[in-house]
Design a protein around this nucleic acid. Structure first.
Lengths: 127, 127
DNA sequence: CGGGATCCGCACGGATACTG
DNA sequence: CAGTATCCGTGCGGATCCCG
């Protein structure tokens, strides 16, 4: 592998490079695999997500307003969005009581608690 | 906590809400702490980063071109950027040989190997 | 080979206002 | 209370070209 041709031809000002396609089947296929860890970590991308998991992990359940107050600086819109994403990813459940005033409670699913545990582990390791 | 006043005044069409500032000092301070796990995970945000760590983790050291070929679809510019970020975060080292043709080698630092291990762990857990 | 320089689109997050 | 609706700036990633 790693063979190539690279030279400055006489009379040319620029260098020329010709790669001789030496990609092995292995090299061609073993790329592109979105690794398992990546799938999980992507669910935690974006601001606030880990923070939400943390707060929800400490309590059993939590209402929107409490969450919002415990996560200083987050706007309601963003908090809603993050919660919806986490819910779609199966990490968070949502329970709505159609009363006046409205009352919505959030909590971690089993998967969510697993992620919370992972976060705790990572926190221990740190660097 | 969680006390509030909320009512529809006679003659008004909209509801009124007055929050009585009930934030406890605890609630006010325990937010905003960027948790340790977050610090580490942020280093892995953005596309390709975990992939780069993976590939570098499997070999001891790796040249730019090889890396590029093993990560299908990444552009050289983006790969460079990611590598520079990982280097700045202390996860990757870089060794340059000022020859013609240039020859640059990358590898994981101790911290990088730790992260690689974490990735492997997460992969096991998955969901 | 291993990049740097540039341009460009758009998704993401923030701010503000409104509502049943 | 627990959201939606709207606007808006920027940052990230991709594409392209260049270079010793």
């Amino acid at each position: 592998m790693e063979a190539y041709v690279w030279r400055k031809l006489p009379g040319e000002s620029r260098y020329q490079m010709e790669t001789t396609q030496e990609k092995t089947p292995a090299e061609a296929t073993d790329a592109g695999i979105p690794c398992a860890a990546d799938r999980l970590l992507r669910k935690l991308w974006g601001q606030w997500k880990t923070h939400v998991i943390y707060v929800l992990g400490e309590q059993q359940a939590c209402r929107f307003g409490v969450l919002r107050r415990r996560i200083a600086g987050i706007s309601p819109k963003v908090l809603t969005t993050r919660l919806r994403e986490l819910e779609a990813d199966g990490l968070v459940w949502r329970e709505q009581e159609n009363s006046i005033p409205p009352k919505v409670t959030y909590g971690l699913t089993k998967a969510g608690r697993a992620v919370h545990a992972v976060l705790k582990d990572i926190e221990q390791i740190d660097l």
